[in-house]
Design a protein around this nucleic acid. Sequence first.
DNA 1: CTGTTAGCGCTTTCAT
DNA 2: ATGAAAGCGCTAACAG
Lengths: 348, 348
Amino acid sequence: MPTMHDVARRANVSLSTVSYAINGTRPISEETRRRIFAAMKELGYQPHALARGLASKRSRILALLFPTSERGLGNTDLEFIIGAAEAARELGYHLVLWTSDVNDVVELRQLIQQGLVDGVVLMEVHLHDKRIEYLRGIDFPFSVIGRCADVAALPYTDIDFEQTVREAVIHLIQLGHTDIGFFNYAREVFEAGYGPAVRVAQAFERITQEMGVHGVTCFCHASAQAGYVAFNALIDEHPEITAIAVMNERSVPGILQAIDDRGWCVPEDISLISLVSSRQVTEMSMPPLTTLAPPAAELGRLGVELLVQQLDGRPVSIAQTLLPCQLVLGESTGARRQRLHEPSASPQ
Amino acid sequence: MPTMHDVARRANVSLSTVSYAINGTRPISEETRRRIFAAMKELGYQPHALARGLASKRSRILALLFPTSERGLGNTDLEFIIGAAEAARELGYHLVLWTSDVNDVVELRQLIQQGLVDGVVLMEVHLHDKRIEYLRGIDFPFSVIGRCADVAALPYTDIDFEQTVREAVIHLIQLGHTDIGFFNYAREVFEAGYGPAVRVAQAFERITQEMGVHGVTCFCHASAQAGYVAFNALIDEHPEITAIAVMNERSVPGILQAIDDRGWCVPEDISLISLVSSRQVTEMSMPPLTTLAPPAAELGRLGVELLVQQLDGRPVSIAQTLLPCQLVLGESTGARRQRLHEPSASPQ
DNA sequence: CTGTTAGCGCTTTCAT
DNA sequence: ATGAAAGCGCTAACAG
């Protein structure tokens, strides 16, 4: 494996000149740089990452911290990760995956003290996240996918939940729906202050009111069974509802089943829109769901870019970005119509 | 940030003694090692990963090569990754995620030449994989999740497709089914020699024959629509079929819809079993599917362990492991029954 | 059992 | 515009 020394000799220059040529850290005559790069190519030279990192005190390695044990990683999380990995690569960084508990500051400190990484990207942040406190305390570069409570000077990227809900509601209104149900996460999750649950709930209230339509919120655990039960309860109490927005994709199969059991059809008798579900997931439904697909890969990408911006010392003026979800039309939403069958409390 | 030098002075020993104490590379008197570790603790010392790697020529960093553009990321892939990441951590290694094209040997070479990683784990290998040829050629440590054609001396781990199919068929037979349909991937995929498609097909043929039941194989693209069409075609031609095993989970929603359109019920009129689908995916169906869930996390873990074994110079005698899928009972399989409604070629 | 020292391959002053 | 040389923090001969 050729070293810089080999390149230097072959190009008839000193070792340091090669270094400067590679890093562009100081002017090199055109002739010299040509020779150097030629020598590099001939030798198939690649700078040694560890040596470079040790000498420059910049490893060009980032860590992506993602808690494993949380609420079960979904399909979207993989896209985050891939997005982050690709962004890192394009920016000339390596990405190491670091699975750890959300609140385990000890492990985080160990990771950082090893001097391996220049900065970290956090996923699944809590509203009051120990890790963020710690990183702020020691002034170690980081960025966040999601948001904690105190976002002052926090470099983060997150989904624009306001826009997401607005677009969903507008879509339904345009189809003629004026009575809209909303399935949030379970009440516990909401009350624990899980960001997305809270933000979407607030947005739904505000926007339905603003638009002058009738909105009914209900909480629902992340399971088909819960969806089945919750749907029936909701419709029994609010038979006027003709469209439902679901924040909680795991409950969708149950909802669909409940609809079917009433002898209803989607979207003829009721429209269904999923609120932050990836295309992949919604395509697994029959009929394929209309959804507001989250920009998962972009979020991962942006998380990395935010971090690299800091590391490369560029101005980080606007380091807070909200990304919109994108309306993907499936076959689960349609024009409001009079239902052929009267709703009945018990199916069949 | 304290260095080894600091520890040495505080413990009143030479720098090298600290090194030896940490690495256990040579005997240290109990008294001395006590002092050293005390000093380390007091200073909160952590060895510098880059320096250590540079000096020892072992970075303790692994790369997970993850081809992104292939056949769309599945839910299982994330579990692979997590499994691998956790295993690496437990073994004292870091894991960098390297997304790249399956056939891009150039990038792989660049990665390796940087000297950053001690070895690589490959995912999504092809039967004739350029990367494997390359790695074998330069004798660089690696392991494989999946299998290529020439497995001689190949350190790999993969799903035991034979066992998977056998268990599925037995499950169905025990429920009384004797006419079983099998949905493979698309014909092109099969003919291109995609390992899982080929292996499962062979296993299905052999096992149904061996068990003396009637098996019908069909190919099907990975979409709900394809599933819908393929199911109807299959049943029209083979109305005797009462159970179906699906290798291709993306077609399942279409199959379910087709069943429903005939006025049939799952599992009363027909049983459905999914062949290598994660629990997560099968739970999204209504009813939840019976599946043979792949040991995704274990595969990832094992891939890393296989690699680390080589790196740590342990005997790698049995470096080829097949892992079984696990039968997870859903509600999509049940006893064979006389169908109430006669099958009809065109639904409704 | 412990210390001394020469690198690992590169960056970066300090000179010229 | 280029070179020489001092480290970065650690490992691993070599010496005792």
